[in-house]
């Protein structure tokens, strides 16, 4: 797609996405995040330090037969694009085992969706 089409698609997505849908997706993030924190606290009842809440360059997940490096969702400046990216990542994060990577990804998604 051309840059012009990207802009238009973001515009259409924004107009055609209801607040209810966004709220429902935020609720899913909150639930997942809460679940992840519960598991993390049970497994290791230690205070989460700030340095842990970021992805490392070596963090990877299996996507099909490939290993893909994880990046936190970046802020593109376009709210709709950010949300779509966050939700895509959230879908993948839902399948990760509880732990630091999952927790960090969920926190990143929550940050984007709550913005």
């Amino acid at each position: 797609m051309s840059g012009n089409s990207d802009i238009l698609m973001g515009y259409f997505d924004s107009l055609l996405t209801t607040v209810d849908e966004v709220d429902a997706k935020k609720a899913i993030v909150s639930e997942l995040l809460a679940g992840s924190l519960d598991v993390a606290e049970e497994a290791a009842p230690v205070q989460l330090i700030e340095s842990e809440a970021c992805l490392h360059p070596t963090d990877t997940i299996a996507v099909g037969r490939r290993m893909t490096t994880l990046f936190a969702p970046r802020q593109s400046g376009d709210k709709t694009t950010d949300r779509i990216m966050a939700l895509e990542l959230l879908r993948v994060a839902g399948e990760l085992e509880p732990g630091r990577v999952k927790q960090t990804v969920l926190k990143c998604c929550a940050g984007v969706l709550n913005a």
Binding site: F12, S14, L15, L16, T17, T18, V19, D20, E21, V22
Partner: peptide, 8 residues
């Protein structure tokens, strides 16, 4: 402008 769902 900027309000979600206004196309519906």
């Amino acid at each position: 402008s900027g309000q979600d769902g206004m196309g519906l």
